[in-house]
């Protein structure tokens, strides 16, 4: 389970440790369930404590972007590392305007 915070209609998920295909599945399930019931206007994924990320991180961000759109909210991604940014940039994710 990852730590989350819900305040002023903003749901923040504090991602932690290594983000890969294995760990992304559990994060996705938890964050989606919370977003579904809380219906925040903004879902914020905080990457501050992510020590490793592969392209599963892109799938996680894109999937949450689509889901938040369906729920009528927005997505923001913050505190990601330079190496995570390298992978985000490859995906064209910047064009979505979610990278803080």
């Amino acid at each position: 389970m990852i730590e989350t915070e819900y305040k002023n209609n903003v749901l923040t998920a504090y991602l932690k440790g290594e983000l890969d295909h294995d760990s992304a599945a559990a994060i996705r399930t938890q964050v989606d369930a919370m977003a579904q019931s809380l219906r925040p206007s903004l879902l914020c994924l905080d990457f501050k404590d992510v020590s490793f990320m592969d392209s599963s991180g892109v799938g996680l961000v894109m999937g949450r972007y689509r889901r938040m759109k369906l729920l009528g909210g927005a997505l923001a991604v913050k505190n990601y590392s330079d190496s995570a940014y390298k992978i985000f940039a490859m995906s064209g994710l910047e064009a979505l305007g979610v990278l803080a």
């Binding site: 599963s56 992978i87 064209g92």
Partner: peptide, 22 residues
């Protein structure tokens, strides 16, 4: 090819080989 994936349902971004190459 970047963004090509046969597993979109699993939220695979199709970037595996692009990341390896880069």
């Amino acid at each position: 090819q970047p963004l090509f994936t046969t597993a979109p349902d699993e939220e695979r971004a199709g970037l595996g080989f692009a990341v390896m190459q880069s």
